[in-house]
Design a protein around this nucleic acid. Sequence first.
DNA 1: GCCAACGTTGGC
DNA 2: GCCAACGTTGGC
Length: 155
Amino acid sequence: MAYWLFKTEPDDFSIDDLQALGTTPEPWDGIRNYQARNLLRDVVTAGDEVLIYHSSCKHVGVAGVASVAKSAYPDPDQFDQKNKYYDPKATPENVRWYRVDVVFERKFPRFVPLGEIKAMPGMENMMLLKQGRLSIQPVTPAEWDAVIAASETDI
DNA sequence: GCCAACGTTGGC
DNA sequence: GCCAACGTTGGC
């Protein structure tokens, strides 16, 4: 069982949208970056735990937890000419892009802002801080524990 | 809206 | 294979 951080733009899809689905799995699609794709395709596994991170918005940070319901399978949008994620170089025989399904676990009792994570000791090597643009990233158990602890602590 | 980081594309 | 141009991400 591994830990991950998945980014989403809450104006598009937020932790509240995920919560509203209840136990219905949500396809985590639109990943069009090879580094993220490789992690999704080769490493992310059903049962893994995911921090849901809100990016490109007023309050950036970690909003809650989901789990991986289904491991990687081809993202059908790449074959759909009308879809914004259509990729003319992708074919069913030569799949380029993948997605996984996630399911809501919980919303944090307290949102953990990026600024707070930056200020935590020992988080200097977190990928979120080292390589800000990666949309699917691994999280170490220590990083996971620190974020969860912060979400349960009033400040 | 600005700008830094960085991934992708395409000419050579 | 190099590298400049360009596009996108994402924090502020």
